[in-house]
Design a protein around this nucleic acid. Sequence first.
RNA 1: GUGGGUAUAGUUCAGUGGCAGAACGCCAGACUGUGGCUCUGGAUGUCGUGGGUUCGACCCCCACUACCCACCCCA
Length: 434
Amino acid sequence: MANLIKSVRGTRDLLPPESERWNDLEATVRTWFRMYGFQEIRTPVIEDLQLFRRSVGEETDIVSKEMFAWEDRARAQSEKRQWLALRPEGTAGVVRAYIEHNMWERPGLQRLYYIGPQFRRERPQKGRYRQFYQIGAEVIGPSSAGSESPAVDAEVLEMLASMLDRIGIKGWTLQLNSVGCAKDLPKYLEVLRAALKDVAPTMCADCQRRAVTNPLRVLDCKVPEDQPKIEKLPRQSDYLDEGCREHFAEVQKILTALKVSFVLNHRLVRGFDYYTRTAFEFTHGALGAQNAIVGGGRYDGLSESLGGPPAPGIGFAIGEDRLVMTLEETRGVSAEHPDVYIAPLGPGMNIQAALLARELRYQMIVVVTGDESFRLKKSLETASKVGASFALIVGENEVASGQFALKNLATGEQVSVARGEIGASVKSFLKSRA
RNA sequence: GUGGGUAUAGUUCAGUGGCAGAACGCCAGACUGUGGCUCUGGAUGUCGUGGGUUCGACCCCCACUACCCACCCCA
């Protein structure tokens, strides 16, 4: 078994029963989205590489070194050369679709959600995969539709908080910050750079590098010795312009009134260039080093930077892999079990079993069948191993008489039931148990 | 991209410079169409890959690869 083909680095298979847990999770998330008027959008996994360069940002780690990208061979010889990429995040594609399909012409705000895989060529570790899944949502639209309102920020955050509660995530923390806007950010960066010029050389190697490439990331440093120095750096909150400051204050006011708990973290920095004003993260302690389960923020200039109309928006992405991981800390895994295992007995009985199975399935009963070649002993053994509630014996005698042996595998009790009654007696038992 | 750890049956893991192991799981049987419990039997490994040391390597050495964890980054 040495040279079998295996799943490639950073990817994995989701097998039952874990896959069922993912489905459960997605089902509750979908209904919760619906309660807030969100509808699903499905965009391609492949996009034009330029999309991510222009939205996430050329200089970010994600775009500069973590993308799976290749040149489209069909066009390589023509003038219209094109580079394609597997999407590393979901917002860019949604905003691209918003622009491409003139969605600003639709009434009101667009409330869109998506569930799907994202790809980043990182070194895998706990809670970090090269193919990972995000549950994301965006609220986007013209300002006239209210897209810039702090009420939208607050609603999105309140939705997330109650969604996490509903899913059963205990002990999350919401961290909140305002990262400024196109008007005030350049000024803050200037001040920060100036301050770092003196301090950075005394800090850790990473900070020295970040002071040049991405000064905001210095705020995110975790090296203990650097902390006092970072605390003395100028704060972004002191450089927000009037509008951003009021906006942020209003978001907090609503959240407080709604009793959504949060902590302000003026050092919260996000990794994409498009974020403006409200930025946030939901973190959870059970995840090790990769402790963010949700990340998001406002992106008021993104549409325009992609050549679209002004369309302020706010969105987030939940790390579904990490969400499931935190769930496993608190809940047990429950497997799916068939209601009835049909044990065909002897030549020709596979056909009879198929007929009966269809009748029962039409009554929404979960049916799995054995094979007529099996000895009854083996069929019953398999039936109890797969966790079926009942075994239904289908032999020549039963077919001839129309009376079938239905065995309760938990109690061992066996009854003879007329063909038309099988579904009803199975269902009444399942109902009594539930 | 950098550092540390790990690699033996389907799974979780023992193990010794001299014949490859356990538990669980899987398959079969304990007289005909009755499971769970029990008993008996069985299969499955190039001991991650490639080199080296040695009379002899699963074990010692080197390289590679993969996985895990951390840095980095982020969901």
